[in-house]
């Protein structure tokens, strides 16, 4: 959540963000009932747009095949066209050469849309701390669910999908800012400020020592 918040702050958006739905207050009966109905429909018929690039795409295919069977979640209809899809599943590493493509695909999707970042590489760059790889797709597009793993098991992906369904069920139509499109800063094309991107993609842990060549 913190990252989306940072993105919104960085983009200069004035909209107030309320992350926790205040359940103690009085809620209008009609909208809550309608919310329930709409969210029930949305959560159980997510059409995925598989943006599979690397190893995670194979595990995604395994999830979609007969053993794990994504069709149980209303996801049997793989939508390879971004226009007819609800959730972008970014499975695999995203190099800089692919970054504008991913951004364009996200922009082509219609609201409401969600993003699952599958695997370590899509979420953080993973083990590819090199000159060519985007250090986390959340520097390009907003992400709803991160699924860790290299690659995640199909159970992991399914858990991520169930988390997304849970998130969808808690959406309220009166919070219009949820479906607000963020426009990237035209001078930099970035959603979040450059200093924040540099900070996010600093090497961490063991990676710091492994940028040295031979001893």
């Amino acid at each position: 959540m913190g990252l989306i918040e940072a993105m919104r702050k960085g983009s200069g958006s004035d909209s107030k963000i309320v992350y926790d739905y205040d359940s103690s207050g009085e809620q209008p009966w009609v909208t809550t009932s309608l919310d329930f109905l709409v969210n029930w429909g949305r959560a159980n018929s997510l059409w995925p747009m598989p943006f599979g690039t690397a190893c995670c795409a194979i595990e995604f295919m395994a999830s979609a095949a007969s053993h794990y069977d994504l069709a149980r979640f209303g996801m049997e209809r793989m939508s390879f066209s971004p226009r007819q899809s609800d959730v972008l599943i970014c499975a695999g590493r995203v190099p800089f050469k692919l970054a504008p493509v991913l951004r364009r695909i996200y922009q082509q999707m219609h609201q409401p849309k969600w993003v699952i970042s599958m695997g370590a590489c899509a979420s953080s760059g993973g083990m590819f701390d090199s000159y060519a790889v985007v250090q986390g797709i959340d520097t390009i597009i907003p992400v709803d669910v991160y699924v860790p793993g290299c690659p995640p098991r199909p159970e992991g992906l399914i858990y991520g999908i169930m988390m997304l369904q849970k998130k969808i069920r808690e959406e309220r139509m009166e919070r219009g800012e949820l479906r607000e499109e963020l426009a990237p800063d035209p001078s930099s094309q970035l959603y979040i400020p450059p200093s924040r991107i540099d900070e996010l993609s600093e090497p961490f842990g063991n990676s710091v020592h492994q940028t040295r060549s031979a001893p």
């Binding site: 690039t53 590493r93 190099p95 050469k97 692919l98 493509v101 090199s130 000159y131 060519a132 790889v133």
Partner: peptide, 8 residues
Amino acid sequence: HVGYLHCG
């Protein structure tokens, strides 16, 4: 055209 998955 290739290179869209070049990771070094």
